[in-house]
Simulated assay, not measured.
Amino acid sequence: MSATATVSSKFQIAIPKEVRERMGLRPGQKVAFIAKLDGVMIVPVPEREDIQGMARGANPEGYRDRNDRF
Rank of each mutant, 00 (worst) to 15 (best):
M1Q: 11
M1G: 13
M1S: 11
S2R: 14
A3M: 07
T4V: 07
T4K: 01
T4L: 00
T4Q: 02
A5V: 00
A5E: 06
T6C: 00
V7I: 15
V7C: 07
V7N: 07
S8D: 11
S8Y: 00
S8W: 00
S9G: 10
S9C: 00
K10E: 13
K10G: 07
K10C: 03
K10P: 00
I13N: 00
A14D: 09
I15W: 04
I15S: 06
I15T: 01
P16Y: 03
P16L: 06
K17T: 15
K17L: 08
K17D: 15
E18V: 11
E18I: 10
E18Q: 11
E18T: 11
V19E: 03
V19Y: 00
R20P: 03
R20S: 12
R20W: 02
E21M: 08
E21F: 01
R22F: 09
R22W: 02
R22T: 13
M23D: 06
M23T: 04
G24R: 02
G24Q: 02
G24P: 04
G24S: 02
L25S: 00
L25E: 03
L25V: 00
R26E: 14
P27H: 08
P27Y: 03
P27G: 10
P27R: 06
G28H: 04
G28E: 08
G28K: 09
G28D: 03
Q29R: 12
V31S: 01
V31T: 01
A32Q: 14
A32S: 12
A32D: 12
I34S: 10
A35I: 12
A35R: 11
K36G: 13
K36S: 11
K36R: 13
L37H: 14
L37V: 15
L37W: 10
D38C: 01
D38R: 03
D38F: 02
D38Y: 05
G39M: 06
V40A: 07
M41K: 13
M41W: 09
M41Y: 10
I42C: 00
V43M: 09
V43I: 12
V43S: 12
V43K: 12
V43G: 04
V43H: 08
V45Q: 09
V45C: 07
V45I: 13
V45G: 04
P46Q: 02
P46T: 06
P46M: 05
E47L: 06
E47F: 06
E47Q: 10
R48A: 14
R48Q: 12
E49G: 12
E49P: 05
E49A: 15
D50C: 02
D50L: 04
Q52L: 15
G53W: 02
M54V: 15
R56M: 10
R56I: 10
A58Y: 09
A58Q: 09
A58D: 07
A58H: 13
N59A: 07
N59F: 00
N59Y: 05
P60T: 02
P60N: 05
P60A: 05
E61S: 14
E61W: 04
G62E: 02
Y63G: 09
Y63H: 10
Y63L: 15
R64K: 15
R64V: 14
D65K: 07
D65L: 04
R66E: 09
N67V: 10
N67I: 09
D68I: 03
D68R: 07
R69I: 11
F70A: 14
F70T: 10
F70H: 12
F70V: 14
